[in-house]
Protein backbone atom coordinates (compact mmCIF):
# COMPACT_ATOMS: atom_id res chain seq x y z
CA UNK A 1 0.00 0.00 0.00
CA UNK A 2 1.23 3.52 -0.75
CA UNK A 3 0.03 7.11 -0.65
CA UNK A 4 -0.10 8.81 -4.05
CA UNK A 5 0.20 12.46 -4.99
CA UNK A 6 -3.57 12.62 -4.68
CA UNK A 7 -3.20 11.61 -1.02
CA UNK A 8 -5.38 8.65 -1.73
CA UNK A 9 -4.48 5.19 -0.57
CA UNK A 10 -3.47 2.91 -3.45
CA UNK A 11 -4.08 -0.83 -3.17
CA UNK A 12 -2.59 -3.30 -5.64
CA UNK A 13 -4.95 -6.19 -6.31
CA UNK A 14 -3.55 -9.55 -7.31
CA UNK A 15 -4.96 -12.73 -8.85
CA UNK A 16 -8.48 -13.54 -10.03
CA UNK A 17 -11.45 -11.41 -9.05
CA UNK A 18 -14.37 -13.85 -9.08
CA UNK A 19 -17.35 -14.81 -6.90
CA UNK A 20 -15.24 -17.12 -4.73
CA UNK A 21 -12.57 -14.51 -3.99
CA UNK A 22 -14.91 -11.52 -3.70
CA UNK A 23 -15.95 -11.81 -0.01
CA UNK A 24 -12.37 -11.78 1.36
CA UNK A 25 -11.42 -8.89 -0.90
CA UNK A 26 -14.58 -7.02 0.06
CA UNK A 27 -13.67 -7.22 3.75
CA UNK A 28 -10.15 -5.90 3.11
CA UNK A 29 -11.29 -3.08 0.85
CA UNK A 30 -14.04 -2.04 3.27
CA UNK A 31 -11.50 -1.89 6.11
CA UNK A 32 -9.27 0.28 3.91
CA UNK A 33 -12.19 2.53 2.91
CA UNK A 34 -13.01 3.07 6.57
CA UNK A 35 -9.47 4.40 7.09
CA UNK A 36 -9.17 6.45 3.90
CA UNK A 37 -11.59 9.37 3.77
CA UNK A 38 -10.64 10.39 0.23
CA UNK A 39 -11.36 6.93 -1.13
CA UNK A 40 -9.12 4.37 -2.80
CA UNK A 41 -7.05 3.83 -5.90
CA UNK A 42 -7.17 0.21 -7.03
CA UNK A 43 -4.25 -0.96 -9.13
CA UNK A 44 -5.20 -3.77 -11.54
CA UNK A 45 -1.68 -4.54 -12.88
CA UNK A 46 -1.66 -7.99 -11.37
CA UNK A 47 -5.33 -8.92 -11.76
CA UNK A 48 -5.31 -11.83 -14.22
CA UNK A 49 -9.08 -12.35 -14.55
CA UNK A 50 -12.25 -10.56 -13.54
CA UNK A 51 -15.88 -11.51 -14.12
CA UNK A 52 -19.22 -9.89 -13.27
CA UNK A 53 -18.73 -10.69 -9.58
CA UNK A 54 -15.90 -8.14 -9.74
CA UNK A 55 -18.27 -5.61 -11.27
CA UNK A 56 -20.69 -6.12 -8.35
CA UNK A 57 -17.86 -5.81 -5.85
CA UNK A 58 -16.65 -2.53 -7.38
CA UNK A 59 -20.15 -1.04 -7.46
CA UNK A 60 -20.47 -1.89 -3.76
CA UNK A 61 -17.10 -0.31 -2.92
CA UNK A 62 -18.01 2.80 -4.95
CA UNK A 63 -21.16 3.20 -2.84
CA UNK A 64 -19.21 2.76 0.37
CA UNK A 65 -16.57 5.30 -0.69
CA UNK A 66 -19.28 7.76 -1.75
CA UNK A 67 -21.08 7.38 1.60
CA UNK A 68 -17.83 8.43 3.29
CA UNK A 69 -17.29 11.39 0.98
CA UNK A 70 -14.55 9.67 -1.03
CA UNK A 71 -14.10 8.33 -4.54
CA UNK A 72 -12.91 5.16 -6.20
CA UNK A 73 -10.20 5.18 -8.88
CA UNK A 74 -8.63 2.40 -10.95
CA UNK A 75 -5.33 2.21 -12.79
CA UNK A 76 -3.42 -0.21 -15.00
CA UNK A 77 -6.55 -2.00 -16.21
CA UNK A 78 -5.85 -4.68 -18.86
CA UNK A 79 -7.74 -4.52 -22.19
CA UNK A 80 -9.86 -7.51 -21.14
CA UNK A 81 -10.93 -5.96 -17.85
CA UNK A 82 -11.30 -2.58 -19.57
CA UNK A 83 -13.97 -4.23 -21.77
CA UNK A 84 -15.86 -5.30 -18.63
CA UNK A 85 -15.64 -1.77 -17.22
CA UNK A 86 -16.95 -0.26 -20.46
CA UNK A 87 -19.81 -2.72 -20.99
CA UNK A 88 -21.08 -2.28 -17.44
CA UNK A 89 -20.74 1.51 -17.39
CA UNK A 90 -18.36 1.37 -14.41
CA UNK A 91 -16.34 4.28 -15.77
CA UNK A 92 -19.29 6.57 -15.14
CA UNK A 93 -18.82 6.08 -11.39
CA UNK A 94 -15.16 4.98 -11.11
CA UNK A 95 -12.44 7.17 -12.56
CA UNK A 96 -9.62 5.63 -14.57
CA UNK A 97 -6.25 7.22 -13.81
Amino acid sequence: MQKTALHTLCIALEGELDHHNAPALRRKLDAALDRSRSGLILDFSRVTLMDSSGIGLLIGRYKRAKDRGGKLYVQNVSPHIDKLFRMSGLYSIIEKL
Binding site: A22, S52, S53, G56, K83, M87, S88
Partner: peptide
Amino acid sequence: SAERSGMGFTVMQS
Protein backbone atom coordinates in the same frame (compact mmCIF):
# COMPACT_ATOMS: atom_id res chain seq x y z
CA SER B 1 -27.57 -12.12 -2.42
CA ALA B 2 -25.58 -8.97 -1.88
CA GLU B 3 -23.74 -7.19 -4.67
CA ARG B 4 -24.68 -9.24 -7.71
CA SER B 5 -24.12 -7.04 -10.75
CA GLY B 6 -26.69 -8.76 -12.97
CA MET B 7 -24.16 -8.72 -15.82
CA GLY B 8 -23.40 -12.45 -16.08
CA PHE B 9 -25.25 -13.22 -19.32
CA THR B 10 -24.15 -9.91 -20.85
CA VAL B 11 -20.52 -10.83 -20.17
CA MET B 12 -21.04 -14.31 -21.69
CA GLN B 13 -22.58 -12.74 -24.79
CA SER B 14 -19.69 -10.29 -25.14
